[in-house]
Amino acid sequence: MTLLDAARGPVLQLALAIFAFGVAWRLSSLLLLPFARDKSLPRTGAPPAAFAALREILRRSWPQKSFGRASLFMTVNSYVFHLGLALIVFAFAPHILFIKSLFGVSWGNLPNNVIYAVAVVTVASLAAALIRRISNPVQRIISTFDDYVAWFVTLLPVLTGLAAASHLIARYETLLAIHILSVALFLAWLPFGKLMHAFLVFVTRGMTGAYLSRRGAQL
């Protein structure tokens, strides 16, 4: 078995299994907790909790009024790398083919050169995020080891993907195998660190939306 065979075979399968089990574990360990029912009388005209939760999930996805310069940088930069990652994963032709091989569904792709450009911008954006994290006193004090691990395992697939696509340094098969291994690392780590926010974001936004809308607070 070659490195590439191992990477896209058992290693990726194992990573996917850890990802699925880990996410299910963490979500169920939160959502199955007995939720204390709020006995306060809702404000007249307060929307149903489910509606308020959904509204808050959507509303906070939109750029908010900036609270300051640090917020402005974080808002813009976070949009850049999140959208960049989404485009790379879901609009790059080889990725779409790979997803089709797994799930049988596919969609149109963006031209490869556009994706390469997006990847370069994404790497720059992630680099800026790291520089900010290290240099800004607020971000530095609140950052833990996990924040740097999350950054590293997110950057790695983009970098190795760029290397594989540009056939630099080593054989394509080797680069592709390394790329897939980096994706496996990302997937396997996701449930255990802050990358889990990809799922928790729906829980926390929804909870706060329901909680404050009950009071009639306009967020």
Partner: peptide
């Protein structure tokens, strides 16, 4: 946390935007 705060305690992405608020 088990009452209803566990998700809050685990979800911070350390963006630091709250400082400005």
């Amino acid at each position: 946390a088990e009452g209803h705060l566990a998700a809050y305690a685990e979800a911070c992405v350390k963006c630091g935007q709250c400082a400005d608020a």
